[in-house]
Simulated assay, not measured.
Amino acid sequence: MNDETAIVTSSMSNELKFLLKCLSDEKNNQAPQGNEPSLDWNLFLKLARHHRVYPLIYTKLKSASYIPAPIIQSMFYDYQKNTFKMLKLTGEIEKISRMVVENDISTIFLKGPILAADLYGEISQRTSSDIDILVDIDDLEKIEGLLIHMGYAKDEYIETVLNDWKWRHHHLVFFHPENQVKLEIHWRLNPGPAKEPPFSELWQRKQVSSLTTSYPIYGLGNEDLFLFLISHGARHGWSRLRWLVDIDRLYKKDLDWDRINTLLQKYQFMHVAGQTLVLSSHLLHTPLQDAAKQLTLHARSNRLAQEALFYIQQFINLHDEPLPKDIAQYHKKHLFALMSFKNKVLFILSFLHPYFEDTKTLPLPQRLHFLYFPLRPFLWFWRKTRIQEMS
């Protein structure tokens, strides 16, 4: 823990504190001892499931005599079910890796089984609900056609005008109805308009995954992976402890902190890295070296870390839309607080670009879509007025 920083965790439940205690030392496979028998074990199980860390928790607690047998049995069932799921995803990754190699598509796999293998040593120790793949935007059409040929169906959820999909969004979603596998094809690591490393640079710094298949599987280089994981976790409020455990595991690898600091400065993520490391050091007792500790000394990093406890201490699922009004408002403010000054300016300017909603408010022929730029303020005001009249 960094003694020069402080976040207040006194409002955490005893069950959440015990969960963090179990996660804080992956080398110790012994169950913690103390006053644990007085815990609400059903709530503890609910927390482990919500934070997607139940495989690690089961591995550590499966022999603990003070935990009720039904709780252990439930954790074993979850662990077993997750292992089967990860094996299925690994098999699908092998098929996809073969397909992209044979069709000469440069592909980087994100998260999922490769992260489990590379950070945890075995795929059963981490959960994943889908497969995430990063490709060059110029290869999107090609890989989309190949996936459809494999039996995947595209989720046509993106509505776009004047090609704003390229920077407002960052991935396409596909689903295989027979295999029941969800797959996301990314052309950006995060939604725009903020800058991030181009695919060509990420490809140059890629590394071969330890996940064994017949074809090479590439993941992000460790320093790029750090940048991706902190930006992804922060964007989701660290609402799943699984993402913070990923950081703890990655941090303990041999990272090039000079390169990391260069990336953080270039892409305006210094304060996000600080937030992440404050949380990891305080909640998981990640031992910080001087190069990393410097990032945690800023008041802004500590303030952002304290704000993230709002998500960690509650059962918040940001994918369950519509969100409750108070949570939606809090998340909106927190996302803005995470941005650097430069990215805040870009974000505000992005509102001047037409939205698809403008095409519904005033349908125009595609050749006249450029008129949505000068019309945008009026169309926005019209929609706001109509909403107020209806409320």
Score class of each variant (00 low, 15 high):
Ala6Gly: 13
Ala6Leu: 15
Ile7His: 10
Thr9Trp: 02
Thr9Gly: 05
Ser10Pro: 06
Ser10Asp: 15
Met12Ala: 14
Met12Thr: 00
Met12Pro: 03
Met12Leu: 15
Met12Asn: 13
Met12Arg: 12
Ser13Leu: 02
Asn14Thr: 03
Glu15Cys: 10
Glu15Thr: 08
Leu16Gly: 11
Lys17Thr: 08
Lys17Ser: 13
Phe18Ser: 09
Leu19Gly: 10
Leu19Asn: 06
Leu20Glu: 11
Leu20Lys: 11
Cys22Phe: 01
Cys22Lys: 02
Cys22Ile: 15
Leu23His: 07
Leu23Pro: 05
Leu23Arg: 05
Leu23Val: 06
Leu23Gly: 04
Glu26Cys: 02
Glu26Gln: 07
Lys27Asn: 13
Lys27His: 11
Asn29His: 13
Gln30Cys: 06
Gln30Pro: 00
Ala31His: 01
Ala31Thr: 00
Ala31Tyr: 00
Pro32Ala: 15
Gly34Pro: 02
Asn35Glu: 14
Glu36Met: 10
Glu36Arg: 11
Pro37Phe: 04
Pro37Glu: 08
Ser38His: 14
Ser38Trp: 11
Ser38Leu: 14
Asp40Thr: 03
Asp40Ile: 05
Trp41Phe: 13
Trp41Val: 03
Trp41Cys: 03
Asn42Arg: 12
Asn42Lys: 12
Asn42Pro: 00
Asn42Trp: 04
Leu43Lys: 15
Leu43Gly: 01
Phe44Arg: 07
Lys46Tyr: 03
Leu47His: 09
Ala48Glu: 04
Ala48Lys: 05
Arg49Ala: 06
Arg49Asn: 12
His50Cys: 04
His50Thr: 08
His51Val: 13
His51Pro: 13
His51Ser: 04
Tyr54Ala: 05
Tyr54His: 14
Ile57Gln: 08
Ile57Asn: 04
Ile57Cys: 06
Tyr58Asn: 06
Tyr58Met: 02
Thr59Ile: 01
Thr59Cys: 05
Leu61Val: 06
Leu61Ala: 01
Leu61Phe: 01
Lys62Cys: 10
Lys62Ile: 00
Ser63Asp: 11
Ala64Glu: 05
Ala64Pro: 00
Ser65His: 07
